[in-house]
Amino acid sequence: PSVSLLNQETLQQRLQALIEGARESWTYAIFWQSSYDYSGTVLGWGDGYYKGEEDKGKGKLKASASTAAEQEHRKKVLRELNSLISGSAAPTDDAVDEEVTDTEWFFLVSMTQSFVNGSGLPGQALYNSSPVWVAGPDRLASSMCERARQGQVFGLQTIVCIPSANGVVELGSTELITQSSDLMN
């Protein structure tokens, strides 16, 4: 079953509170919602809150893994998504033509992903009923999970998946964050 609108609002507020209230600097939070089909439990997009990266230093250019062609592709997709949301008659939003950062793209792509129980970092956390904490570019790059490797390419240094009621909460950061019992609680 899909999350009702009311639940979606509550979920959004809780994800936002989790990130904004944390001592660590998280870039995004995603709730992967569990559902059941003939093959078993599947984790799919529930909701997400994107905070973005800390602004470090004035005028410092953000390192990006994207080429000019990749940027064009991202902007094109964003323009199409924007028309889908606001209606094709709406004027094009100027913000859509701003560079789409690597972490923004990673977050957007996440909306299309799902995990069967036991697969990927969210699937592992659910299957083992235990948090998965991957910190450091090397650990992300050598992960069995494609999503973790992709995250590293897009500049993430930490991805955490914590099992919770009806799903898994995932947090990602461009900073190196070591395990915190504070957050778990």
Partner: peptide, 26 residues
């Protein structure tokens, strides 16, 4: 672009709105 289910559509709308705010305030 494949059709976007409701939960994703709501998240997407929110993401685009917040992005607009970030770009405007930059």
């Amino acid at each position: 672009i494949p059709s976007v289910p409701q939960a994703r559509k709501a998240s997407l709308a929110r993401f685009l709105e917040k992005r607009k705010e970030r770009v405007m305030s930059a």
